[in-house]
Write a protein that binds this DNA or RNA. Sequence first.
DNA 1: CAGATCACCTGCTTGC
DNA 2: TGCAAGCAGGTGATCT
Length: 249
Amino acid sequence: MPLITGHRIEEAHFYSKLVTRGNFKSFAKSLQGSAIESVSRIGKHIVVKLDRGSLHLHLGMTGKLLWNVEPGNYTRAIFRLDNGTLIYDDIRQFGRVSYSDKLPSAIGRLGPDALAVNFDSFFLSLHKHHCSLKSLLLNQRFVSGIGNIYADEILFAAGIHPKAKASRLLKRRALKLYEEMGRILQTAIEHRGSSISDYVDSNGVKGGFQLLHRVYGKAGGDCERCGAVIKRIVIAQRGTHYCPRCQRP
DNA sequence: CAGATCACCTGCTTGC
DNA sequence: TGCAAGCAGGTGATCT
């Protein structure tokens, strides 16, 4: 979002206690008149560095950042800048928007970014965990940035069963997992993500990666690789989709 | 302590 | 037709 870098927040408005989780009147006051120095991403977190403090956003499930649109029923925050208006919409309010002079503790606990971690530390960390690979991929302290859809797609691409134990993964298989993790995430970014319900980017454009899903949401259908019927189970309270033939335990 | 489970939300789908 | 129950998932709190 380099669009907003170098610009000034003229005023901010917040409308949801759930999303801000704090005193949004003081947030709005602090943000007023501050200049945007940079925008960066850490895992699934967005950090907007200001000349004083920083703005932290997490889109949760249904959060959307929109540029120059009219506020709607689900608008939870509005930032009027000197070059346009940034709107934060969030139907389910699982997202978070806050202002602080230091980074939220959640960011400090994050593991290395899934697109930046090197294989050696990935492999080392893998062997410290005894849980299933599916739940480990979702664990932001292990690597950050992977959600439920991508965990399923990565495991399918790597041909690894979601219940496989992380600590027992052989190096060769771990390397495959590592490579597919990077490849799937990179491809998803190039397609601007997965629009499952109504997700759009800041220009209102839908993502296209959902067209490339090979197991997520495909339960009951045929595996494109081997023809077996895709299964759906629950791991870590999350719907988990996999091919029982391509992804052997 | 690590891993598992629950709660928080709301729109959509399913089933009677 | 209508309405209740179930489902979806990221994260933090709580439980085992």
